[in-house]
Design a protein around this nucleic acid. Structure first.
Lengths: 137, 137
DNA sequence: TTTTAACCCTATAGATTTAGTAGGGTATCG
DNA sequence: CGATACCCTACTAAATCTATAGGGTTAAAA
């Protein structure tokens, strides 16, 4: 299951991507427009800023804004920042690999084999989808 | 992330699928061979039996066995039984659909759009992979 | 018929993760 | 200076996961 954190994070990013000019938008505005709890959203946007996807401006007229063009923000990055590894199991993760305790040889593991297929297919989708692709409805 | 329950369940199913004859195999045997906690495995096999994938035989010489040919057991079924919905979010689930609280119109939701793509691609993989496909390593 | 192997089933508990909430601190603009 | 808005840490309630406990039932073999 996708966490609310990821869901809200993507909604916030697309809200910012839809702005005509790239001026700062306050947490409060995004919170209202997208129906997201203000304090929860605050912590999500903080994560996105620390990851390098968003910039922020403090004080009156401040808020968050995208640091890159929406078409240059791949969902692979967004998902890794918000949801964590794209692989469904550590033994097939490219960035967070970890051996299974219970498998003597992972090439013989059915789960391993299946999850490699799932990982590759999901990586393909996230890799060829950008923020810009998600706002053209 | 894939739960241990699903992981162990798939490993148990493939263990049964690898048997030459379809004779009952005890929980204890599978537990030892696949390094899975006996009691945890017991509850997983119970789930698989109740879902109609496995049959069981009580008493001495008893155990669990597949009710169908491995090539006729699609991973779509296995995943739904063990892990639950294949969709990553209820608003794109075919079998467990639920509307999001925060979305006025879901056709305009970026998350919805993205997760439909992910769901379809995963459904395709699970649909064209059978238990038999996973034991040919 | 008694013993033993093996599944049946419910309840519970500890650990972890999720989804927030609280509350004060800091920077900026007018 | 004071209002606005982000910064950051800590905490908590609820849910989920990963088992474990323990007794009950069935069936085959001695």
């Amino acid at each position: 299951m996708l966490s609310k954190k990821t869901k809200y994070g993507i909604k916030a990013l697309t809200y910012l991507a839809r702005q005509e000019q790239n001026v700062p938008v306050s947490i409060a505005t995004i919170s209202e427009m997208e129906n997201i709890s203000l304090k929860f959203l605050e912590s999500i946007l903080l994560t996105l800023r620390k990851s390098g996807l968003l910039g922020s401006k403090k004080g009156k007229g401040g808020g968050y804004y995208l640091l890159k063009n929406p078409k240059d923000i791949k969902m692979t990055t967004v998902m890794r920042v918000l949801e964590g590894p794209i692989a469904m199991i550590p033994c097939v993760s490219l960035n967070y690999y970890e051996k299974c305790d219970d498998c003597p040889t992972e090439t013989e593991c059915a789960v391993h084999l299946l999850m490699i297929r799932v990982r590759d297919s999901n990586l393909k989708i996230y890799g060829e989808t950008s923020l810009a692709d998600l706002i053209n409805y």
